[in-house]
Every structure is written in C-alpha cells, then in structure tokens.
Design a binder for these strands. Structure first.
Lengths: 159, 159
DNA sequence: ATCTCATTCTTCGACATTCGAAATCTCCTG
DNA sequence: CAGGAGATTTCGAATGTCGAAGAATGAGAT
C-alpha cells in the first residue's frame, strides 16, 4: 500500500471515528432521555468538579443566557443538576451535578475510558507517542482550517 | 512519561480533536449560513457523486421524511441543491448538489484534505500504519460502548 | 445613606426545526 | 383497471433557541 493510499485511509478513518463519536453521543442522549444540548451541559457539569455558574455554562455551550436557563431547568427536572445561590454573589446561580448525575457518569462514561485504556495497552510507548503526535497535528490542521473558513466571509449570494 | 500517562493524554487528545471537528463544522455552517443539519445534508450530497433520493437522504440523516423535505427546501432556496424527478420512478425525488455546492466543496472542504495530507507527509509508512490501526481500534471501542449504552436501557427514574 | 449603573439570571414573545399523521401522486400486481 | 404499496409533501403540534425586557443584586460616587 502506497503512502498516498494510507494517507487517504487515515482521512477516511478520521471521518468514521467522528461518526462513531456522534453515534455514541446519540445513544447516551437517548438512554438518558436528554437532547444533545442538555447532554453537553451535563458533560460540562461532570467534568468540572466545582459548580459552574449559569453564565459560564452559557459561554461554554455557546448558548444565549435565555436558552441556558431552560437547559438548567430541564436538567434540574431530570434530577441531574441542582441550582445553588453563590454565597459570595447572590446574583449568580451555581449549577452542580447531582448524585444521580454522578451515577450516570459511573455507568455510562467511565467504562468508555476503561475500554479505551485497555485498547491502547497493546501499543508500545513509541507507537503511543506517534498517535499522540498525530492527534496534535490533526487538531492543529482542523483549527487552522476553521480559522481560514471563519475569515473567508463566504457568501453564496444566490438570491 | 509513563505509558499510563501517555494513554491519558491520548484520551484527552481524542476529546480535543472532537472539539476541533465540531468547531470546524460550526465555522462552515456559519460561513454558509446553514444550520448543522443542512450542512450534514450538503456533505452527503457532495460526497455522493450521483444524486440521492429524498428517502435515502432521510435515512442517512436519521431524520423523518417530513423534516427531510424541509431540509431539501432550505438547501434548494440557498441554491446548493436541486430536485430532479427520478426518470425511472416518478414517485422518487432525486436531490443533487448544484454547481454552487461544488464551489463550496472546492473552497471549503478540499483545502482541508490538502492540508491534512501535507501534515501527514512527514510520517513514515510504519507510523501511518500505527495511526490507521489506532483509528480503527478507537472506532471499534466507541461502537462497542455505544452498543452497550443502547442496550442498557438506562433509566434515571427520578420523578 | 442613597442613587445610579453594571452584572447576572429569568421571563416573555417570536421564530426555526422536528415529528407523526394525513394527503397526493405513482408504481405494481392480480 | 382496481386496489394496495411506496415515496414524498403538507399540515398541525411540540420543542428548542434567540433577543429584548424585567427583576434582583452588587459596586462606585456623591
């Protein structure tokens, strides 16, 4: 197999991996009866140990404050998040994952990390270094391209 | 750096790469003034040389036929897709990318592939093989975990 | 002290996206 | 050529999002 062929296969592999991630997220959302936005919010709440403010959540989700309020409402109704008044600033509302959310983390997300680690165990240190480098390079390429697209001010101007 | 540490970094790298893909898609959608669903549909139309039927598009997008109709409507209004009656079966509607959509492909998507290929050029064949294997393994892990989650019939049963 | 003015979140009304069900048109079979 | 199956669209309802206005709190100035 020529190098060019492998490069094409890598590109394809990356795309397929993307789809698999999407499929997993979809499965998790369905299992938890949450929409994708709420699932993203839950991820953020779980990955931050300390509670996030509503505004921080809004920024992280790139959602308007209004939409974020309803996201928190839904997670609260689902028993996965709770609102707490910030003791230092009573304008702020802190949002924290509940114990039920921690259980979701244990049941759904932790096994993924475990399985991933097992799958990587067979690689040598050198191979892992190559993989890590590849991930870094791929990310850089994507980020550069995203920047280019954002700058391009593309306009179809069809009408 | 210990193997375990590298494995953790790989896990992190994968997550970051995911976010970069998401950011690129977001940038592309913004540039084209399309929502994410319509962008996915456009991708499908561009990657299939021959036109897709509305039903095929519906299945590929995992969207109801009704929603797919409106997706096609929007792409058509944007000048990026066109409806054609299937000459062999006039019930079917074939959807094809327009010349404007091909221009989008050239301007937005092709440079990503070029930059990606350039970034991979520095790796040896063996390294590329490792990367390819990793992508395959990662996908398998994700798919297995998605299957597990789908089977788990998770229920928070909060109320 | 109290009076702005900014900050933070929520409420409200409007708009966009999606779905399920019914309708329309076309194909195929008997 | 009549009836049923298939493919798409139309319609009405539900959901998610936004911008703007509103309410509560904090901070600085007089």
């Amino acid at each position: 197999m020529s190098k060019n062929e492998i490069v094409r296969e890598v590109a394809m592999g990356v795309r397929l991996l993307q789809q698999s991630f999407d499929a997993f997220d979809e499965a998790a959302a369905t299992a938890l009866k949450l929409n994708r936005t709420d699932l993203r919010a839950l991820d953020l709440l779980l990955s931050d140990d300390d509670a996030l403010s509503a505004g921080e959540l809004s920024a992280a989700l790139k959602l308007s404050p209004a939409a974020t309020t309803t996201v928190i409402d839904r997670l609260e109704r689902a028993g996965l998040a709770g609102r707490i008044q910030d003791p230092h600033n009573r304008r702020r509302v802190l949002v924290a994952a509940t114990e039920a959310a921690r259980k979701v983390e244990r049941d759904i997300y932790l096994p993924v990390g475990v399985a991933g680690a097992e799958a990587l165990a067979g690689y040598t240190i050198e191979q892992l270094a190559t993989i890590l480098d590849f991930l870094r390079v791929a990310r850089q390429v994507q980020d550069e391209q995203a920047t280019r697209v954002r700058a391009s001010r593309y306009q179809s101007d069809h009408a």
